[in-house]
């Protein structure tokens, strides 16, 4: 450890134990929001304080950590958190999805399939899926306890009534293990099917709201819908402009001030891995053509 003034992974051992207890309880009741004594972290709320505490509590010296922010390994938030644990825990870090044992994520699930033994830690701003329809916490907890989820469909109904289809495109509610309705954090609904029967453990930490919840490996996760308006994954019209992938979630990148734009994989590791393997998209620096935009 190169920063002896910190305890391993920043948090003290008592706090980590408290968080681990909450995590165990969360795993035992998939989708249930377990309250925990969230600590002040050296970063503002909303920057991933929940995810950081969960990561700190589960991190061991042999772990390999990857941090992504909207799929990207190289945004400020991702780099800061990766460096934070590099400094306070001295763990190895990586940008490769396959090599990582712990992946902390904000708003995406990696494109490459996760495998058993990996842990995906989500940063969650608002853990309560019913919050915008029912502002009282006492009431939402009762609704979860009694499994009264009619209200969740009211939201989807409103979508269809207004837009003709379910327009919720992120934080799309799911039912976990046929019991609790859960907010998958603001991941795009494109990622929802990846949560179902996932071999990796998925942990969710909401620091400001002081809640931890979990999806154990190989758990049934169903996106809510109507019989006549079934859940549909978002589709893109074109493949990634850099690696040509047709199966990934794309970001829109504005390339100039004349309306030029390109669509590229939001998962940078996936995109780079594919480019290294020789896949090319329409805008990539392929040998036979010039780069279209500087």
């Amino acid at each position: 450890m190169n920063a002896p003034s910190y305890n391993f992974a920043y948090l003290d051992e008592q706090t980590k134990r408290m968080i681990r207890r909450a995590i165990l309880k969360a795993i035992a009741t998939p989708g249930y929001q377990v309250p925990f004594a969230s600590r002040e972290m050296p970063m503002p709320y909303g920057w991933g304080t929940g995810g950081v505490q969960v990561t700190a509590a589960i991190l061991g010296p042999d772990d390999v950590l990857k941090v992504i922010d909207q799929g990207s390994d190289d945004t400020t938030n991702a780099i800061s958190i990766r460096k934070f644990f590099g400094k306070t825990a001295g763990v190895a870090t990586t940008t490769s999805t396959a090599e990582a044992t712990v992946i902390q994520t904000r708003h995406r699930i990696p494109e490459a399939p996760l495998h058993g033994g990996q842990v995906l830690v989500y940063q969650v701003p608002i853990p309560e899926p019913l919050r915008f329809l029912e502002p009282r916490e006492t009431e939402t907890r009762r609704m979860h306890a009694l499994g009264e989820y009619g209200l969740m469909h009211v939201k989807l109904y409103e979508d269809i009534a207004r837009f003709g289809h379910i327009a919720t495109s992120y934080a799309y509610p799911v039912k976990v293990n046929a019991r609790y309705v859960m907010d998958p954090s603001p991941t795009p609904k494109f990622d929802n099917p990846k949560m179902d029967n996932c071999p990796a453990l998925q942990l969710f930490g909401a620091g400001r709201e002081k809640r931890i919840y979990a999806i154990p490996p190989h758990t049934n996760v169903v996106s809510l819908d109507f019989e006549d308006h079934p859940f549909a994954r978002y589709r893109f019209d074109a493949p990634c402009a850099l690696c040509g992938a047709g199966d990934s979630y794309l970001d829109e990148i504005v390339t100039d001030d004349k309306g030029g734009r390109m669509f590229v994989c939001s998962d940078t590791d996936y995109c780079e891995t594919r480019q290294a393997a020789g896949h090319r998209g329409s805008e990539s620096a392929a040998p036979h053509r010039e780069v279209a935009h500087g």
């Binding site: 009264e148 009619g150 209200l151 469909h153 009211v154 109904y157 409103e158 269809i160 009534a161 109507f226 019989e227 006549d228 308006h229």
Partner: peptide, 17 residues
């Protein structure tokens, strides 16, 4: 519509139409 439909959805109606 959702106000009227809420009770139906609460008892498990799952067909928008």
């Amino acid at each position: 519509g959702a106000n009227v439909g809420e009770r139906l959805m609460a008892v498990g109606w799952n067909h928008y139409g």
